[in-house]
Amino acid sequence: MASEEKHIILETRDLAVGYTSKRKSDVIASGISFSVSEGELVALVGANGIGKSTLLRSLAGMQASLKGEIFLKGKRLSEYGMLQMANELSVVLTETPASKNLTVLELISLGRQPHTNWMGTLSEEDKKAIKFALEATNTETLAQSKCYELSDGQLQRVYIARALAQDTTLIILDEPTTHLDLYHRAYVLKLLKKLANETGKAILYSTHEIDLAIQLSDKMLVMTHETCYFDRPKNLIADGRFDSLFPTETIDFDKNSGRFTIKE
């Protein structure tokens, strides 16, 4: 392996995801092959119900995959113990944390759980990681606020800070821009970009903001009913991968601007 080549953190080979019941397995998406390297921001896009969340849940080890393989830092995901995985992979989910009574600092500190002893005592290293997470997400001023007092935009930053505090090589985010206004959508994605560049973390997120994702992501995974495409955004545009993402009688993709327009 060439020394200047970036390390691959997450890789899938011909992965199929879905649900299994006693009688049959229900494949939601298949033929997924892609990788996320160190310092890369990768977007996962596709229509509603195409299996984005299912794929992310499988990648995060929250549900079993049906076929193919997932490698995390070159080791099969299924070979990881729970705590070991928690040291490599953190998540930001669409569900809101159960307790809104937590303070921002408490919530972010919980990200240190895989690293602390049975009492959850915070060492100097833990405190440093928490401080970094607060600063990186610009949430220092919110530290003592209760979560129920925050806006959606602030909350999203807090959830990202918690994942940062967990200090993993890979962060997986499920639709981190939902419910946010345009400014916060751009803010969150720029933050992810900056984090990937500056900390060398591999970041994978799903989104419906295809326009923004094209502008900010290093690579994109486009899921359609038939297959999945994985490449740099400009190559995907050139190959016309976004053209048929949505029914063309309603929405058109403009290759020059990289934006979707509503058909008159």
């Binding site: 929250m62 944390p97 307790s99 937590l102």
Partner: peptide
């Protein structure tokens, strides 16, 4: 009392708790 750390993790919900290494 000895379950306190796990209880704290559960405040984030099951999926988050699991992602932090909780059985």
């Amino acid at each position: 009392f000895f379950s306190s750390k796990s209880l704290n993790a559960l405040l984030l919900g099951e999926n988050y708790a699991r992602s932090m290494g909780l059985h």
